[in-house]
Design a protein around this nucleic acid. Structure first.
Lengths: 227, 227
DNA sequence: CGATTGACGACTGTCGACAGTTCTGGGAGC
DNA sequence: GCTCCCAGAACTGTCGACAGTCGTCAATCG
């Protein structure tokens, strides 16, 4: 958690995996919109700024490309991913696809331990919603949904979710709006837990459809306004 | 430098993207099991064999890692992905998740053009099933399912499918069994088309559940035998 | 005055090299 | 004979350099 000012201006970084560090730096820079959508990134410039060579920069950029934060054009380099409304809808539709499936699998092997873990996370989210920053709220929300998918038991599903998580953060950052009010968040997520506890697949599906639908409409509306 | 003849039919390396070529070579080598599951790949060795430097080999390996054909361990290098039964089930469960969603979306905007394209593909598959090689059959089957997802209209969904396609090929190769008989293939896929034509979401869901379920059981049974 | 072209600069794709780490095989010790 | 340890080999992570390509902008031509 040390705010590596070493990354600020040409300082030398060592010790840990350079690729990982560069990837983290780039991810943060893109999410926080220090790089504008569509902006071209120069490998040489980046390498100079970070005090490393081009090799780790290239690898990190490829990694972020696979995560959907960058796009590459042959012989032209990397560009910051620019999401239009249509792509945004697709991302949330994919998210709905994943979470719907996870809920269906989860309701079949739901137990007290999982319920307690999820319940504690929602409580944490409610707490965070009152006091902390927007980004913290978003992170805790993502943690909840990641748990949902993790508990479904399909690791491959989780991997896909982890990938789109980065895109989701970008989406949320792009529209620049906070999540809804604390009580709204609470209500939405308690509904999910109630549905799971009921053991009724149909009810689970309706709950998650509503939940992701609300989030999607919220984001789509937001991008409509900001563009 | 040394225009190695290691590339299939002595093709010249220059001209096209080296990374892409190395990735294709590696993909083929892994799918065709010229590299055993779990086998370690040496960057230096590969670069020497292909007559290129390590840089494109590394990038290609990273690409295949993101596609699930290789796994990397820090400071130890790349290893050919070894799939156990559990991971295999997860992959097919993810596939079910994607295709189920695609069917649900597709049935809402189904039209004559899409129906005709799908119908033609099934006819091609029946034709191929009679005369061609196993790999060709598998490829045409994947083309059909890719069309299904493409027609659903969600490009992001398609990207995930394209990713797991490589894993699917690996799964199928690992169990070393052919697809079922031609008439079975035909029946299964006509059922999907019939369900779509009926416009009934429930029927679509049952059809795709059955279809992928059969494929999954087939592969899981296969890997149980081979291991 | 507008379109074309050619030179300049910047950048990507690719290469070989070096340092530190991991693996391997043989010898010493028990 | 078996185990442990150490030296050499091999490998990955990282670096700087070079060549070919792409974009830019100004000079030239119609």
């Amino acid at each position: 958690m040390t705010p590596s000012s070493a990354f600020g201006s040409g300082a030398i970084i060592q010790q840990r995996n350079l690729v990982e560090q560069v990837a983290d730096y780039l991810t943060q820079a893109i999410i926080s919109q220090r790089y504008a959508p569509g902006e071209r990134l120069s490998e040489v410039q980046l390498a100079r700024d970070l005090g490393v060579s081009r090799a780790p920069v290239r690898e990190a950029a490829r990694l972020l490309e696979s995560r959907g934060l960058l796009v590459s054009q042959p012989r032209r380099g990397f560009f910051v991913r620019a999401l239009d409304a249509s792509e945004l809808i697709d991302v949330f539709d994919l998210r709905l696809c994943l979470e719907r499936h996870a809920m269906a699998r989860l309701v079949d092997n739901y137990d007290a331990q999982k319920e307690q873990a999820l319940r504690r996370q929602v409580e944490l989210m409610c707490e965070v919603a009152l006091h902390d920053s927007d980004s913290r709220k978003i992170e805790e929300d993502l943690v909840f949904h990641r748990m949902l998918i993790d508990f479904s038991g399909n690791r491959r599903l989780l991997k896909v979710f982890d990938d789109i998580t980065h895109e989701l953060r970008l989406c949320i950052a792009l529209i620049g709006k906070t999540h809804a009010e604390p009580d709204t968040i609470a209500t939405c997520h308690w509904q999910l837990l109630d549905a799971l506890a009921s053991g009724d697949p149909q009810r689970c599906r309706e709950a998650i459809d509503y939940h992701i639908g609300v989030a999607r409409d919220y984001v789509v509306q937001g991008i409509g306004e900001s563009s």
